[in-house]
Simulated scan of single mutants.
Amino acid sequence: MNILIGLRNNVYADYLGYNLRLLGHNVKVVEDGIDIVNLLFSKDWDIVIVGILVSYYNGLEILERYQKYCDEKLKEQSNFVKAKFFIGSSFYDQVSMQQAKSLGATDYFVVPLDTDELLNNILKK
Rank of each mutant, 00 (worst) to 15 (best):
L4M: 05
I5T: 02
I5Y: 11
G6I: 04
N9E: 13
V11H: 14
Y12E: 11
D14C: 13
Y15T: 13
Y15V: 11
G17Y: 08
L20Q: 01
L20T: 04
R21G: 03
L23D: 00
L23H: 01
L23F: 03
G24E: 02
N26I: 05
N26W: 02
V27D: 14
V27E: 14
K28E: 12
K28W: 09
V29Y: 03
V29T: 04
V30A: 09
V30N: 06
V30E: 06
G33I: 05
G33C: 03
G33H: 07
I34K: 10
D35E: 15
L39R: 10
L40V: 01
F41Y: 10
K43G: 03
W45Y: 01
W45R: 01
W45N: 03
D46F: 00
I47G: 02
I47Y: 12
V48L: 08
V50G: 02
G51M: 05
G51D: 11
I52Q: 11
I52H: 14
V54T: 06
V54F: 04
Y56P: 05
Y56R: 15
Y57P: 10
N58I: 08
N58Y: 11
N58T: 10
G59P: 05
G59K: 06
L60Q: 05
E61R: 13
E61A: 13
I62R: 09
I62S: 07
I62G: 13
R65E: 14
Q67F: 14
K68C: 05
Y69P: 00
Y69V: 01
Y69W: 07
C70H: 02
C70P: 04
D71A: 15
D71F: 15
D71N: 06
E72M: 15
Q77R: 12
S78A: 09
F80W: 14
K82V: 04
A83H: 02
A83C: 12
K84H: 07
K84A: 09
K84E: 10
F85N: 08
F85H: 11
F85I: 07
F86N: 01
I87F: 05
I87K: 03
G88W: 03
D93V: 02
Q94T: 15
S96Y: 13
Q98F: 12
Q98Y: 09
A100R: 06
A100H: 06
L103Q: 09
G104S: 02
A105C: 09
T106A: 02
T106P: 05
V110P: 04
V110I: 14
V111A: 10
V111F: 13
V111R: 07
P112Q: 00
L113Q: 15
D114C: 10
D114L: 10
T115I: 11
D116T: 07
D116W: 06
D116I: 07
L118E: 01
N121E: 09
L123D: 00
K124Q: 02
